[in-house]
C-alpha cells in the first residue's frame, strides 16, 4: 500500500516537473550496508539534480510580519 501511495506522489511530482526527488526503499535494521548504499546513491542523485526549484520560492507576499505572528499566536490559543 505504501508503494502505491508513493507511486502516486512520484507520478504527481513528475507531472509538476519535480521528477526523481522522491525514492522509496525497504531496508531492514540488519541491512546497514544497503542503507549506506541507498543513501549515498540518493544523495549523489539529488546533488546531480541540483537544489530544489521550490526552495526560496515558497515564501509568499504576506502582511506585516509581526501582525502575522500575532495572528498565529491567537490561533494557537484558540485551538
Amino acid at each position: 500500500m505504501t508503494i502505491k501511495r508513493i507511486t502516486f506522489v512520484q507520478e504527481m511530482l513528475k507531472f509538476m516537473g519535480l521528477e526523481g526527488r522522491l525514492h522509496l526503499e525497504w531496508i531492514s535494521s540488519a541491512e546497514a550496508q544497503k542503507f549506506a548504499r541507498v543513501v549515498t546513491d540518493f544523495t549523489e542523485k539529488i546533488t546531480h539534480l541540483g537544489p530544489s526549484p521550490i526552495a526560496g520560492q515558497t515564501r509568499s507576499i504576506s502582511m506585516e510580519p509581526h501582525e502575522n505572528k500575532r495572528r498565529k499566536h491567537e490561533y494557537h490559543k484558540a485551538g
Binding site: Q57, T58, S60, I61, M63, N68, R71
Partner: peptide
Amino acid sequence: NPDLVEPGALPPEIPIFHLVRATHMA
C-alpha cells in the same frame, strides 16, 4: 488549518497548497 496554511498570505504557499488539494481530489 492556520498551522498548515498561513492565514493572510498571498499567494498561498505554492505549489504545496494546490498539491494538497490535488491529492485530496485523487
